[in-house]
Simulated scan of single mutants.
Amino acid sequence: MDEQNKPIRKTDRRTLYTRQVIKDALLEAMHKKPFERITVTEICRLAEITRATYYLHYQSLTDVLDDALDDALHIAESETAAGAENLLALSHRLASIPADHLQESDSLMPVCQRAASLPKYKVLFLDETISGYVVNRIYQSQKQRFIHSFSQQFHLSEKESQLLALFIINGSFSVNKALHWQKDDTWYQIQALLLRFISSGYDGILPADATAP
């Protein structure tokens, strides 16, 4: 039997399809009620699967939530135009853009903001009952990039880098939450202000022998 006809490939496709149906059912349910009030029974009904099928793929609704959040972050990461640009250079680049032109550079914005802009996944960011959980998931997915950049560019320890990343991610999330994740003129004005604030902060902790980009 050649590679492309192996049964495992069909099984993998079915598994991916079923998991996607379950995640879509969760997102649909979250448009009607908070995550904490959703049940496995409801997800099975919306997904048109049995409980036995559900538990073949997920142990809990939190596992489904994690998978959906990871999908959103992965899509946002793959669509970013920042590439390998380091955080310091990217921060200065964004801080130099006037608020009324910032929308044209959405592809350079942080991953969490891009993920929240995806229509399919926005509901994950609007549910206040899981805000703390969501921002921690974002932090866990992004912290290594921050730690690497901060240690390389600012000569900070791993602990210092972790805490600075925590401050930036939680602060940005809280501001976006207060603005209801609505990307209107006010949102872009506030983002421009925060970008200048963060960029100046980065300059303030640069080592004496380093120069800003």
Rank of each mutant, 00 (worst) to 15 (best):
A81T: 12
H180T: 07
Q59D: 14
S161Q: 08
D127K: 08
Q191K: 14
R19N: 01
E85D: 03
I97G: 10
R145D: 03
Y58T: 05
E160T: 11
R114N: 02
D209V: 09
S107T: 02
Q103K: 15
V64G: 14
A89T: 13
A178R: 07
D70P: 09
Y55F: 07
T15G: 05
K23F: 03
Q103S: 10
F146E: 02
H101S: 03
D127F: 02
R45E: 13
V123N: 01
L56D: 11
K143G: 04
R145C: 03
A52H: 06
A115I: 12
A82H: 10
D209W: 08
D67C: 14
R145T: 05
L166N: 12
V134E: 01
D71L: 08
V134D: 06
L61W: 09
P7T: 01
Y54Q: 11
R37Q: 15
V64S: 12
E28G: 09
R9Q: 03
S157T: 12
I198Y: 13
V134K: 06
T53R: 06
E3C: 01
S157I: 02
A76E: 10
I198K: 09
D184S: 07
E77F: 11
I130V: 12
A82D: 10
R137S: 06
I8Y: 13
T211L: 15
L179I: 00
I97M: 08
I169Q: 12
E79R: 15
S131A: 11
L102Q: 06
C44I: 07
A47Q: 07
L65D: 09
I138W: 11
L206R: 14
Q153K: 14
K177W: 07
V175T: 10
Q140P: 07
L61T: 00
H57A: 05
P207R: 04
K159L: 08
L65N: 09
S174W: 02
L156C: 11
T80L: 06
R14Y: 04
L65K: 09
I138G: 13
A47D: 00
